[in-house]
Design a protein around this nucleic acid. Structure first.
Length: 786
RNA sequence: GCCGAAGUGGCGGAAUAGGCAGACGCGCACGACUCAAAAUCGUGUUCCCUCCGGGAAUGAGGGUUCGAUUCCCUCCUUCGGCACCA
């Protein structure tokens, strides 16, 4: 994932990028043509906020930051292909961001709508739902709690792809990300059922439990529901108005507090339950949200916890319609809603039907009731989502302009292709007014209608920067291409992305947007296949030494530049790969890095020491040479496997172990032998992806090999050499290890058993008794039961 | 409340098919080198005991198994996500 050019690379960037780089280098040595690109997600709020604060133009600041970060990245020794660099704030880039917007608009996937939207009062802009986090509903960027505003904004129809986004077939993504996305989309299966007011107005509701329709004893509308005024009786008007106003005053946070006691008011109106023609009262209550489902619910207090609490508080009727086995529910005396399985009762034709705990039509009661509803035209099977369309308008300057023009006569139309890009004006005053700065520019918005040529006005909002990052992988293909967003030949050669790495914090933001984007483009005919990124891996987070999230205010930030200055890039890379499981992350340990530094230094010594470079080997024993070779090839096997699996910490461990073995072999006189030379070569090749600089130096200057080690093929394991001749097998007596026997590696079960029984230690424990049972796990262990 | 991830020495972590728990490293202790220190090198380092030898231990408890860090059940803790979602 590309970084945001915030200023300096922090240790988190190193943690994300260097293991990923090592793996890219490994894949290159394995013979793949590897495209390992880098770019900058360069639009966004921080640069603009800094402009407001300090008066520096966002463009200037952003490109200065990019220059600095590029330099720092070079110090990491990464193999980024800088010829493919893409910067989203570059007009040659955002021209195509705008173009993509127009393609989505033309395909009917971008639309404008007035609706209550989340507004960050600090960033002075709207936010997508995905960018509102936590219980207090705060802005993902600045942490300020958001408020609601009614605004007309641009949306992308992400919900059109809700079902497809739930399908992860064909991609190798972490289960966690798949689960987060699945929960975010929040699909529930059920039925939509149409109740009627006494006046005959239809009231559509969604329910996951159509099998409890006969237990609906009242209805609840959200205070904002359009029918509220119509159903309210004159006598209740005052109370209803008061409640509506009070609800409107409350923030979302207050309204959504779970532990809050439910409140509501009777409207005086009644609805007719279509399954049994019962006349049931209509209430309004703020526990029913206008933003989910239809804003109206049927309340089944006997089988829903919330409805039950509400019914008891206001003395409403409770009628059980699902009878659990061996228990008789009584609506007047029951103390909690029964939300589980049972047999349907009080439900006309369905009495006795079994309701299971399954959701949707897997539940036989739900299935048959839905069929019955459909036959009668009262309701139908229906699916509801938590997922909302993506709000992409931002009332900010530093983003890609939304390339739309509004004409009094012809409404909204896209800017013609030959006028793209709509460039950001440079002479803008940044004021935190809550209005888009582009709106306040004296001339920028004035243009002509693409249809009639009359005076018209540009859209002055800019796009969410997640729009820019939804397609950047395509720009990497051909960042200088100007006939389209990318060169099709490059697309056909490289796409889709084989391996994608980055933080999990983007699970329901970027990683969901980019999947939507790809699918939309596929349907438009621009991309191919169902998914943009085949394999995803997430790194964890590096915490401060105090085990807290790194932040300037805590003063626990680790600056990589300082480490590189002190230890060198290779040591920092090695430690980053070594100190934690990559996908887990861990707190930083300033002392721990010494281990990686020592390793690098000891490898250096091992290769450069005159004792290691002896041309006349002194080794007498074949055993030493054989053991060295065995260890080399075993290590190679492990390191290869670990690179493939993103298990970087054990790569370093294995290399440390082999180094220790090589020191011992050298003591035993192995230096200068063919086995020693092979060990050295393989060692450096394994090390090359991790510590590219030192590996190169040792390869060319000390082994005298031709430049470059990074163009060498990854060595292959000699399985015969890696094989052990003899193995030591632990022998357990009653589950405890009591001895060990050494047998040939290919010993048969019988031979192992015999050796185990003959061993002194085991004889001692047997005390002459016959063992009850002997289990031989070939090559692993013998277990004797006495 | 629901969903997910995790819990192993003083610390980071390893155990990749249910088979020797603690690899590798940090730290610490002792030793060598040094006038001394740092660096370097070497040895040791889960805990407990009566230190010969034995016992206990992978968040807690239970189960399956000859054998469980690994599989199953119940629970606890931490982190992340969602949350009056009908």
């Amino acid at each position: 994932m590309l970084p945001y050019p915030s200023g300096d690379l922090h240790i988190g960037h190193w943690y994300a990028m260097t293991p990923s780089d090592a793996r890219a280098r490994f894949m290159r040595m394995k013979g793949y043509n590897v495209l390992f690109p880098m770019g900058f997600d360069a639009f966004g709020l921080p640069a603009e906020n800094a402009a407001i604060r300090e008066g520096v133009h966002p463009m200037k600041r952003t490109f200065e930051n990019i220059g600095r970060m590029r330099k720092q990245m070079r110090s990491m020794g990464t193999m980024f292909d800088w010829e493919r660099e893409a910067v989203s704030a570059d007009p040659a880039y955002y021209k195509w961001t705008e173009w993509f917007f127009i393609q989505l608009f033309k395909a009917g996937l971008a639309y404008r709508k007035m609706s209550p939207v989340d507004w960050c009062p600090n960033c002075n802009t709207t936010l997508a739902r995905e960018q509102v986090w936590g219980e207090d509903r705060h802005c993902e960027r600045c942490g300020t709690p958001v408020i609601k505003k009614d605004l007309e904004q641009w949306f992308f129809k992400t919900t059109k792809y809700a079902d497809e986004l739930l399908n992860f077939d064909g991609i190798d993504w972490p289960q966690t990300v798949k689960t987060l996305q699945t929960n975010w989309i929040g699909r529930s299966e059920g039925a939509s059922v149409t109740f009627k007011t006494e006046a005959g107005d239809p009231i559509e509701i969604f329910t996951t439990r159509p099998d409890t329709l006969w237990g609906a004893t009242f209805m609840v509308f959200s205070p904002e529901h359009p029918l509220v005024d119509k159903v309210t009786s004159p006598g209740q008007k005052e109370a209803v108005e008061a409640y509506k106003q009070q609800a409107a005053r409350q923030s979302d946070i207050e309204r959504e507090a779970v532990d809050k006691e439910k409140t509501g008011v009777f409207t005086g109106g009644y609805a007719i339950n279509p399954v049994n023609q019962e006349r049931i009262p209509i209430w309004i209550a703020d526990y029913v949200l206008m933003s989910y489902g239809t804003g109206a619910i049927m309340a089944v207090p006997a089988h829903d916890e919330r409805d039950f609490a509400f019914a008891r508080k206001y003395g409403l009727k409770v009628i059980p319609v699902i009878q659990p086995e061996g228990m008789e529910l009584d609506g007047d005396t029951m103390e909690a809603a029964h939300e589980h399985e049972g047999a349907m009762i009080n439900s006309g034709p369905f009495n006795g039907t079994r309701a299971t705990n399954d959701k949707g039509i897997k539940n036989p009661a739900i299935k048959t009731v839905i069929e019955w509803l459909e036959e009668r035209g009262i309701g139908k099977r229906s699916v509801n989502y938590r997922y909302r369309d993506w709000l992409i308008s931002r009332q900010r300057y530093w983003g890609a302009p939304i390339p739309m023009v509004h004409c009094e006569k012809h409404g909204w139309n896209p800017v013609p292709d030959d006028q793209l890009p709509v460039l950001l004006p440079e002479d803008v005053e940044w004021k935190p007014t809550g209005e888009s700065p582009l709106k306040l520019h004296p001339t920028w918005k004035q243009t002509t209608c693409p249809i009639c040529g009359e005076a018209a006005v540009r859209e002055t909002d800019t796009m969410d920067t997640f729009m820019c990052s939804s397609w950047y992988h395509l720009r990497y293909l051909s960042p200088k291409y100007n006939k389209g967003p990318f060169d099709e030949a490059e697309y056909n050669y490289w796409m889709p992305v084989d391996t994608y790495t980055g933080g999990i914090e983007h699970a329901t933001m970027h990683l969901l947007y980019t999947r939507f984007f790809h699918k939309a483009l596929r349907d438009i005919g621009i991309t191919e296949g169902n998914e943009p990124m085949l394999q995803l891996r997430n790194q964890g987070m590096v915490l401060g030494e105090d085990n807290e999230k790194m932040s300037k205010s805590r003063g626990n930030v680790i600056a990589p530049d300082v480490l590189v200055e002190k230890y060198g890039a290779d040591s920092v890379r090695a430690y980053i790969m070594f100190f934690a499981r990559w996908e887990m992350g861990a707190p930083w340990d300033s002392q721990g890095i010494e281990g990686a530094v020592r390793w690098v230094r000891r490898v250096w010594t091992l290769f450069t020491d005159p004792a290691s470079r002896s041309a006349s080997p002194t080794v007498g024993s074949d055993e030493t040479k054989k053991n060295l070779r065995r260890k080399v090839h075993q290590t190679l096997r492990n390191v290869t496997r670990d690179f493939e699996n993103f298990e970087f910490n054990t790569i370093i461990s294995s290399l440390m172990e082999l180094m220790n073995e090589m020191y011992k072999a050298r003591e035993a006189g192995a230096a200068g032998t063919d086995e020693w030379k092979e060990a050295q070569e393989i060692y450096l090749k394994m090390m090359a992806p991790v510590t590219p600089h030192i590996a190169e130096e040792l390869w060319t200057s000390y082994l005298g090999k031709p430049y470059s080690i990074h163009q060498q093929a990854w060595p292959s394991v000699d399985e015969a050499a890696a094989k052990e001749d003899t193995i030591e097998i632990p022998v357990q007596v009653n589950g405890k290890v009591r001895g060990k026997v050494v047998v040939p590696a290919d010993a048969s079960e019988d031979e192992i058993r015999a050796a185990a029984l003959a061993s002194e230690a085991i004889q001692k424990y047997l005390e002459g008794k016959e063992p009850k049972k002997i289990i031989v796990a070939k090559g692993r262990l013998v277990s004797v039961v006495v």
